[in-house]
């Protein structure tokens, strides 16, 4: 399927989701849906680096928070429309992604992961000590009462995140099927052999960290307007890092559809658990599911389906 056709179908599905959600006549659907869509973007972004090239990034929260705090910063100066803020958040965290990649990508395996974790700690410390964006007390963002075109603000936020999810998934799919995708796969499999086949591994890894970081920042940019109050501890929360790793792992990391399925599945379960039990149980659910999948289906749901097909095909 051509990418333009895929994009069109994704837009149609997105439109169906939006009007379906409107049909329910319950604003909570949009609140919960926003979070799930946000995780679709984060999981897809994580997978571009972690799934395609095999470099496990523990710093999702740092990129997400960069996006969120770019918005806080600009909101304090001059409030701009959310789509513009998303672009700015994307540029900022894309640049940080490139920088992080340049500094850390000579490290492999666990060492790279530890470096990304350190990035999150360093950035959080910076934000805590930066009073202009609220410091450790946090910052309030007063959400406008109405949104352009649609009117209802939460529906507007939902629509924006839906569009971002479509963009992220289409990007991931385009990469997967392009020459870049082949290059990423060789890096995941064997970097020395990749170099010997002419693959410029460092450059490709930098492209991956930049795209991945930018998408994470884009997911974070609308967050202050959604939550209304941003403070470092929750914005740099463990939940973002853990979820954005767990979702692709559970769905399957080799294809764009894995993070999508994982995010919808885990995100929905968490939203339901938040309402029925408590949000405190969310990380427990993620942990248990992750353990279960690592044991039963290490290649995620996609791997399970592929194995099943192969065994039937003989």
């Amino acid at each position: 399927m051509r990418s333009s056709v895929f994009f069109l179908i994704a837009v149609l599905v997105g439109a169906a989701v939006f009007f379906g959600a409107r049909f329910v006549h319950n604003e909570y659907i949009f609140f919960a849906g926003f979070v799930i869509l946000q995780f679709i973007v984060l999981a897809t972004a994580w997978n571009i680096l972690g799934g395609y090239t095999g470099y496990v990034n523990f710093g999702t929260a740092a990129f997400f928070a960069l996006g969120a705090y770019s918005t806080v910063f600009i909101h304090k100066l001059y409030p701009l429309p959310i789509p513009v803020l998303i672009l700015i958040g994307g540029v900022v965290s894309g640049i940080v992604g490139l920088g992080m990649g340049y500094l850390t990508l000579r490290l492999r395996g666990a060492f790279f992961s530890i470096a990304t974790l350190a990035l999150a700690v360093v950035l959080q410390t910076l934000i805590v000590n930066w009073t202009f964006v609220g410091g450790s007390r946090g910052a309030y963002i007063i959400r406008p009462a109405t949104a352009p075109l649609i009117g209802n603000y939460i529906e507007y936020m939902f629509l924006i995140m839906l569009a971002l999810a479509i963009v992220a998934i289409t990007t991931a799919r385009v990469i997967e099927r392009s020459q870049l995708g082949y290059g990423f796969a060789t890096i995941r499999d064997d970097e020395v052999a990749a170099e010997a086949s002419g693959v410029p591994t460092l450059r490709l890894k930098l492209i991956a960290t930049t795209i991945s970081g930018a998408l994470m920042g884009m997911a974070g940019a609308p967050f202050p307007y959604y939550i209304g109050y941003v403070e470092p501890t929750s914005t740099f929360g463990l939940a973002y890092a853990v979820n954005s790793i767990a979702m692709p792992m559970i769905g399957g990391t080799t294809s764009w559809i894995g993070p999508l399925i994982g995010a919808i599945l885990l995100g929905t379960i968490q939203q339901v658990a938040t309402v029925t039990i408590s949000s405190a149980v969310n990380l427990l659910i993620v942990g248990l599911l992750l353990v279960a999948f690592v044991i039963i289906a290490p290649k995620g749901l996609i791997g399970l389906v592929q194995d099943f097909r192969r065994s039937r095909g003989g």
Binding site: Y182, G183, T186, D190, A193, S197, G198, V199
Partner: peptide, 21 residues
């Protein structure tokens, strides 16, 4: 040191894409 995630034909595509191109 084959690329285990790629098919045999795709293994050969890699040098074609990244070297010959």
């Amino acid at each position: 040191r084959p690329f285990v995630g790629l098919s045999i034909a795709d293994n050969l595509r890699v040098p074609l894409i990244y070297t010959v191109h």
